[in-house]
């Protein structure tokens, strides 16, 4: 008790042992966060480990031949997922083919003041709603409404361009092409949202610089803004691809689940995810093991795409 106004320095040390609710809460949160992170890591490890463990018999039996074999025969216990890999990659590719130009176009449209804000806001909102629709709803709508609706058009294409291998079969009720179109609608919001963020985060000086040199709006968009935002756009496409590869429900309902890798987009096909969804119920033994092998392949595929996406996106952020 030497001074009333300034407390001696020792009280600083004392104060750390005093009860301080805020400090306490900080501590609790710190530990909670660490515990959660560890838990998530453990779950991830668990999943990977069990996938590997259960897939092991199939990996032993079929080796890498599993990837190139087209048989799925539970009676003779011979399994291969070539048609599924083909279907997975092709359906994703076709979905991107439609969704990327459309998505980037919409993103540019939404950021470059083509429309008054009164119209823009609802459009952006609708785009976000599109992402909120459950995939089973897309599947149901696809099968009873969308596919029947486009069938005459596809039949027309088949009649006119049937000599092109991709259109060479008569489109039936379900086919890879129709499934890919629905998939395109499903991944559109991802592409729009991220591309739009990218475009609107570009420095406005870039726009001014381009206009100031006598570029038209179109030249500014195609030659300056899109190239400047390219890594972000590529990142959005990668994320969308990741979603497309793993999409299960809608594809299981729409793709036709035919175990063949037909060159024609109009024929029924299958994907890894839809194969698993269709077979897990009655699978046991080597069949179950093969499904897990397929799951493992799918996981590696999406993991690679995601890592690639992260790399591209982070490179973009560095430029910022």
């Amino acid at each position: 008790m030497t001074s009333l106004t300034t407390a001696p320095a020792e009280t600083l040390i004392d104060s750390s042992t005093k009860f301080q609710p805020e400090r306490q809460i900080n501590q609790i949160f710190r530990w909670l966060t660490i515990a959660l992170a560890v838990c998530v890591g453990l779950v991830l490890l668990w999943i990977t480990y069990s996938l590997l463990l259960i897939a092991l018999p199939a990996i032993r039996t079929f080796g890498l031949g599993f990837l190139t074999n087209s048989t799925w025969n539970p009676v003779e216990e011979i399994y291969g997922v070539f048609p599924q890999i083909y279907g997975t990659i092709l359906s994703s590719f076709l979905a991107l083919l439609f969704a990327v130009p459309l998505g980037v176009g919409v993103a540019v449209f939404l950021t470059e003041n083509f429309l008054p804000p009164k119209i823009l806001t609802p459009i952006a909102f609708i785009m976000e709603l599109l992402a909120a629709i459950p995939s089973v709803v897309y599947g149901l709508w696809g099968i009873f409404v969308f596919l029947p609706a486009i069938r005459p058009i596809l039949q027309g294409i088949n009649r006119a361009f049937g000599w092109i291998p991709f259109f060479s079969t008569t489109p039936g009720g379900r086919h890879l092409f129709g499934a890919s179109l629905v998939l395109a609608i499903m991944i559109l919001p991802t592409i729009v949202a991220i591309s739009r963020d990218t475009m609107s985060s570009l420095p406005p000086q870039l726009r001014q610089g381009s206009y100031g040199l006598g570029a038209t709006r179109w030249e500014t968009i195609t030659r300056v803004l899109v190239p400047a935002g390219l890594s972000g756009i590529i990142g959005s496409v990668m994320l969308a691809l990741g979603r497309a590869l793993g999409e299960t429900m809608a594809l299981a309902m729409l793709v036709g689940n035919a175990n063949n890798a037909n060159i024609s987009w109009f024929s029924p096909a299958s994907t890894i995810a839809s194969l698993i969804a269709n077979q897990f119920g009655e699978a046991s033994g080597l069949q179950k093991s093969s499904l897990f092998y397929g799951a493992l392949i799918l996981m590696v595929l999406t993991l690679l795409v995601n890592i690639l996406a992260q790399m591209v996106v982070s490179r973009f952020q560095q430029v910022e």
């Binding site: 420095p203 000086q205 870039l206 001014q208 610089g209 381009s210 206009y211 100031g212 040199l213 006598g214 570029a215 038209t216 030249e219 030659r223 300056v224 190239p227 400047a228 430029v319």
Partner: peptide, 29 residues
């Protein structure tokens, strides 16, 4: 008008392109 009356801004705003392409941009368009 902007092709005849050029502008340099307060904050340097080169395009994220090569030095060469930055200079060539206006001429190209």
């Amino acid at each position: 008008v902007r092709r005849r009356i050029g502008m340099v801004f307060q904050k340097a705003n080169p395009f994220p392109k090569s030095i060469y392409e930055n200079v060539a941009f206006g001429a190209r368009i």
